[in-house]
Amino acid sequence: MANIVITGSTKGIGFGLARAFLDNGHNVIISGRSEETVSSALDRLHAPTAQCRGLACDTAELSQVEALWEFAEATFGTVDIWINNAGLARTGWSIQDIPQQEIAAMVGTNLLGTINGCRVAAAGMRKQDEGKIFNMLGGGSDGEYFPGMGVYGTTKRGLDYFTDALSRELKDTGILVGKIRPGMVITEAVIREARQNPDRFASSRRFMNNLVDQVETVSAYLAEKILDCNKSGEKIRWLSGGKIAARMLVGLVRKREDQFARHGL
């Protein structure tokens, strides 16, 4: 049984990971920006208090991340796995058109928040002499370009480098550092952007439908791989290049069931 902390886990893939770990008997600390979102997520998880607790945490604030570690340590004694999942995707703008506040929000959460999480978790795990830290990557982390994702992709590309650097710096410790690449998952953010820009969504719907997956499907796979991972620097990837190619080929001859319909899109 592992003790696991997941930042940004009141919704989306983070919430899905929390549910997957809990369903398999592990202990989980969830977090989100506000007490209201944390409380709501705990209610939806329906897990015993002894197995799942939550704390509000803005990962861009170092003191709040430190408080999250202390809370987890006080609750479960040790932290075996720390997952930096908190992230923001504000897409659809060119680099010149994106509002400044959206740039600051993504850089603050995606980069600074993850760096804070890694530093705090690494310090705590050094005292334990072991532990696993995983960073959530995303579109752009491999250097690929997606229209409207210039700033978001830049933050994720930076995280890829940072995670490699941290893995090397901790190679002589008992701390494993890994990457998670979840692929295209239908989260609340995807649904929100589809509704905000229905024309753009309609034009890309058929293509996206071949590649997207549901949160629960991806989360169950990732949770299993995270628990099994025993090599630092490893990237856990759901949507591999081979899987993408296979889906696109199949999509030419057989229409995939609409993945968006269940979300009212």
Rank of each mutant, 00 (worst) to 15 (best):
P182L: 05
I103Y: 11
H46G: 03
P182Y: 01
A202H: 08
I226V: 13
D228R: 15
R126G: 07
V250W: 00
N209P: 01
R181V: 00
R195C: 06
N135M: 08
G25T: 14
T163L: 06
I115K: 04
L88Y: 05
Q128V: 10
S232G: 03
G131S: 05
G113N: 03
G131F: 11
V185I: 15
R181M: 01
I98P: 00
A122T: 07
E234P: 00
D228Q: 11
L17T: 11
L17H: 09
A104K: 13
N3D: 05
D228I: 02
R247Y: 13
L55M: 15
I13C: 02
G108N: 15
I95R: 03
P147T: 08
D160Q: 06
M208D: 11
N110T: 09
Q128F: 11
A60C: 01
Q51S: 07
K243T: 14
V151T: 12
R195F: 10
I175F: 07
L42S: 08
G14E: 11
F260E: 00
I226A: 00
C57D: 04
I98K: 00
V120I: 10
E66G: 03
A2D: 11
F207Q: 12
L252T: 11
K156R: 08
Q101P: 01
Y161F: 15
A50M: 00
K11M: 14
L239N: 05
A246Q: 14
I180Y: 09
L159W: 04
F260Y: 09
V177L: 08
G143S: 03
G77K: 07
I4L: 06
Y145A: 03
Q100S: 12
I191P: 08
L265E: 10
I81E: 06
N85L: 04
G131I: 09
G174Y: 13
I186V: 15
S204G: 15
R119H: 13
T155R: 01
I186S: 08
S167Y: 09
I133F: 09
N110C: 08
G138T: 07
D23A: 14
E61N: 13
C118E: 05
D43F: 10
A220E: 12
D172Y: 10
G113E: 06
S31P: 08
Y145H: 11
R200Y: 09
L166K: 10
T187V: 13
M248Y: 08
I115V: 14
L17N: 12
T154D: 03
G251T: 10
M106I: 05
R157G: 13
G242T: 00
S219F: 02
N110R: 05
G158T: 03
D97Y: 01
E102V: 01
M184R: 10
T37F: 04
Q51M: 12
K132Y: 05
D258L: 04
A18R: 10
E257S: 09
H46E: 14
S34E: 02
A121R: 04
E224A: 15
F260R: 02
D142G: 06
T7Y: 04
D129P: 01
L249F: 11
Q214D: 14
V177C: 06
